[in-house]
Amino acid sequence: MKRVLIVDDSIAVARQLEKIVNSGDEFEVIGQGRNGAEAIKLCQQDKPDILCMDMNMPVMDGLTALRNLMQLLPDLNVIMVTSLGGVGDKFTEAIKLGAKDVISKPFEKETVLSLLRRL
């Protein structure tokens, strides 16, 4: 079972995403963070297989955290989560920085699961 860390400042979004990730027996959520700084700390501490992280967060935004994480843990699978799905440069920046994919909020269960399965 692949271990997933969720980082999003929205409790509502994190809860919905956790429900989707835990819905089968392929993935399990091992923890949650609320900003980019917590993402870095929790990834170093818990070594998840997959990180699902929001782009737009307080304290440290998702793209800054992604840039740091790709230097610290280059093999980490990161999926960025965003409401800015239609903003092309944000998508491009996330992919260029090393994110495996970008998903738009709110989520479609099957889209999230099929994306996780591809990693």
């Binding site: 929205s10 409790i11 509502a12 809860r15 737009n56 799905g85 239609g86 903003v87 909020k105």
Partner: peptide, 24 residues
């Protein structure tokens, strides 16, 4: 109340994300 408020914030976040895309 925290979850309910958070849902409204998230809705606003989704709308504003779309606004940023349309503005582009």
């Amino acid at each position: 109340v925290e979850v309910l408020d958070d849902s409204v914030k998230e809705f606003v976040n989704i709308v504003c994300g779309n606004i940023a895309a349309k503005a582009a």
